[in-house]
Write a protein that binds this DNA or RNA. Sequence first.
RNA 1: GCGAUCGUAGCUCAGUCGGUUAGAGCGCCAGAUUGUGGUUCUGGAGGUCGUGGGUUCGAUCCCCAUCGUUCGCCCCA
Length: 461
Amino acid sequence: MADKPSLPRGTRDFGPAVMSKRLYIFDTIRAVFRQYGYMPLETPAMENLSVLTGKYGDEGDQLIFKILNSGNYLDGISDAQIAEGAKPLTKHIAEKALRYDLTVPFARFLAMNRNEVALPFRRYQMQPVWRADRPQKGRYREFYQCDADVAGTTSLICEAEIFGMIQQVFGQLGIKDYTIKFNHRGILAGLAELIGATGQEATMCVAIDKLDKIGKDGVTKELLDSGFSATAIDLLFELLDKPLSESDFGQSLTEKGFTIPTQLLTGLADLAQVLEIAESLGLDAKPLYFDLSLARGLSYYTGAIFEVKINGVQIGSVSGGGRYDNLTGLFGWPNVPGVGFSFGVDRLYDCLQELNLFPEAVLQSTQVLVANFDLEKSQPTGLKILAALRAAGHRAEIYPEPAKLKKQLGYADAKHIPLVILLGEDELSTNQCTIKNMFSGEQKQVPMSDVVAEVERTMVG
RNA sequence: GCGAUCGUAGCUCAGUCGGUUAGAGCGCCAGAUUGUGGUUCUGGAGGUCGUGGGUUCGAUCCCCAUCGUUCGCCCCA
């Protein structure tokens, strides 16, 4: 036997059954993005390495998949350079790399096309990204991101509309019980200022973000290790102590006699306005929760941040995003603000699977199979019916070789084909055909001229 | 980058305290049933037990290495 083929670790094939379900999710999301005026964008799988490095921090740079130069990539490399080790050598032998996310390529695109894009520019992008990470549960080295961003506006309408898109996508996918948690980086920065840790909000945020994972003691330890004072940490937890809403939070701070930092006030005002716009848009306020402990890891967020969790399943957040001030600055186009979010398709898939929310129709590839008893005799009629069904817009196929009926029906069964048209001598001689419903087992003889109409009637019922 | 875990049929896994010919379920193919699938029964195909080395009279089993898997930490989606 030849060597068994295998896949690089952290990558997957998506077979037809899985793909059908994935496409259902992609199609739903795409339709909603378009409805909100977002335009499609695709960028190359590979970027110049210099575009990607330095954007994700040291750890991120390590996780970028580099592409070895073509030809003799050691040409012009001196022994001294080799002696320096792998890291400094990388940029000489690998000039290209696989994209690590969709945000940086988007920023690169904007900077390169700044004279052509009309701001505010809304784009969505659904493509795979690659990370040279160590795979584990729910983490892959190739996975899809579904991003939608709008660049060039500070309007809070965008934030509210993102909540709208999330609600619409979830509504269409049949997900009812979910929570959209939101917070604001200004509030977190203000919080840091209040506890006398100005400038250290990044460390603070990373720690807070883990609150529900490692608990209060874990966070305390991590902050102490990072050099926060015990009094600052106590104060932090006092402030974090579960305010009900963003307005209650502001109020409770005033009652406790704190002088509220400006950026905190701005954050609170922003969030209040987002909620107001959301209400005007007719959004459901129930899933929206202000959560002061939400921090999100990504450091480039500067305004509102949010994250979506589906309740009742043990799966992390399925969507998240936020506002940032300076998307394209690294590519030489300063002061372009933006806000964006993305859906985690793989996790959404797991949720729908667990909640059993994929519609039966998603699994059906072909709607009608034309079967035959004697291919030679029934072929002309079969092809005619096939063409008529396709012309009427139905997905139809003919069983292409002579085989026992048992096998043909088994094929229909395996492929979840709901209707089978049987063509044998009896049918041909009376100019009729038999339509079999594979779910109920019912059969019906109809005249050839009525086949399409009967198929349509059966599919509706 | 660190720490574990597991590699036996297409899939999920048993098993041999080291001993002739390595098993089951599911799946696949065929028949029972030459015009009827998803149920049932019968039969069949399919494995150098991840790879390389060592110990041994003898290794799928013990030891070492290597590759791969899965999971936790870091980080992240």
